[in-house]
Computed example of a mutant assay.
Amino acid sequence: MQTIRSTSEERIMTNSAGKLAARNKIAGGNRMELLLFRLNGRQLYGINVFKVKEIIPCPRLTNLPHHTPEVRGVAHVRDGTISIVDLGMAIRQPAMEKPETHFVIVTEYNRRTQGFLVREVDRIVNIDWEEVHPPPKGSGRESFLTAVTQMDNQLIEIIDVEKIIASVDPFAQGVSSEVLTEDIKAIANEFHILLVDDSSVARHQVERNLSETGVRFTSLTNGREALEYLNNLADDGKDVADEFLMIISDIEMPEMDGYTLTNKIKQDPRLAQLPVLLHSSLSGIFNEAMVKKVGANFFLAKYDADELARVVVGQIRKAAGMKV
């Protein structure tokens, strides 16, 4: 692991999203940048830099009625109003006292902008996804970790932000009847999809909507696991493109990211015909360029149930020889 910058809170705060994006060349090489921060203790936590828009001193908060306790209020940031979530409370820690003395990490996940209140920011590090691992099995279903890694002999806990967002602002969206026509429902069960996502919340969300569509699915938790699974099928002489209608993969995953997984699939003649949809809370022009670079067939920013279903239905129609 290589630390690319050790910096003060003040210097990190001056990094705009544009400056952070200037380092996007590491993506696609199975590497990522983590923004490290602390909550109530000395434990270091991390989130992907590409989801960070800016870091600011905590602005003046306005209380909102009928919100979960984790939402400490709303604040005016730039030209909009965003919710400020106490990240410590969201992972079952005590509330942070005197929020005005702390910092807010402004992020964009799943097409929504929100702020996370943290005690202090630490620095940005550049790491290999191979050095990032799933959380210990003893973490339990209530854990808000999506992965862990080590730096300078210290454990870094990477937070499952999608799970936190779902806990403080539940998001429920089913597939509309306009997308799921009767002719598709009649044949959907003939088709099988491979789903790859390390976030249990995101994975279950997609699983629910695939179930609505009627297709069968197999779920795995990271790119390395998925590649080994596909390679084993190919080694057994099976045509992977016949086994699966398509693969739906997250981008950010421990051990092997979605970009690397897609690139390896498309470079292997036995797997190359398998359509790949990259489905990620990462969004923007950069990711669209990376999708083309690694050869993915589709890209969707999380999360719109109808958009995802339309891609799946389109693949069903294509495979069944129906009018698309």
Rank of each mutant, 00 (worst) to 15 (best):
T3D: 14
I4E: 09
I4N: 10
E9H: 11
E9C: 14
R11N: 13
M13E: 15
T14P: 03
N15Y: 12
N15E: 15
G18S: 14
K19I: 14
L20A: 10
N24I: 13
I26T: 02
G28E: 08
F37Y: 09
R38D: 02
L39M: 10
G41Q: 07
G41K: 06
L44N: 09
I47N: 02
V49D: 07
F50M: 15
F50N: 09
K51V: 06
V52E: 02
I56E: 05
P59Y: 05
L61E: 05
L61C: 05
L61F: 15
T62Q: 13
N63W: 14
H66L: 14
H66E: 15
H67D: 15
P69T: 09
V71I: 13
G73M: 06
H76Y: 12
V77K: 01
R78E: 13
I82T: 00
I84E: 01
R92L: 10
R92E: 13
R92Q: 14
K98I: 11
P99G: 05
T101S: 12
F103K: 14
V104P: 01
N110T: 08
T113A: 11
G115C: 01
V121E: 04
I127H: 02
W129E: 06
E130G: 06
H133S: 08
K137N: 09
K137V: 14
K137S: 09
G138K: 15
G138E: 13
G140E: 12
E142P: 12
E142R: 15
F144H: 09
L145M: 12
V148I: 07
V148R: 04
Q150I: 13
L155S: 05
D160Y: 03
V161K: 01
A166Q: 15
S167M: 07
V168C: 00
D169K: 11
A172H: 15
V175W: 04
E178A: 13
V179T: 03
L180N: 00
D183V: 05
I184C: 01
I187T: 01
I187Q: 00
A188K: 01
F191G: 02
H192V: 04
I193K: 04
L194D: 01
V196H: 10
V201H: 06
A202M: 11
H204G: 14
E207N: 04
R208Y: 13
L210S: 00
T213N: 08
T213R: 03
T213Y: 06
L220M: 06
T221A: 10
G223F: 00
E225V: 11
E225L: 05
N232W: 11
L233H: 07
D239L: 13
D239H: 11
V240S: 04
A241T: 05
A241D: 06
D242T: 02
D242C: 03
E243Q: 08
F244S: 03
M246Y: 01
I247A: 02
S249D: 09
I251H: 04
E252S: 09
M256N: 01
L261N: 05
Q267I: 06
Q267H: 07
P269D: 04
P269A: 04
L271P: 00
P275L: 02
L277V: 02
H279L: 10
H279C: 03
A289S: 14
A289V: 14
A289R: 15
M290D: 04
V291M: 12
K293I: 08
G295P: 07
N297Y: 02
F299H: 04
D304C: 11
A309H: 00
I316T: 02
K318I: 05
A319R: 05
V324Y: 06
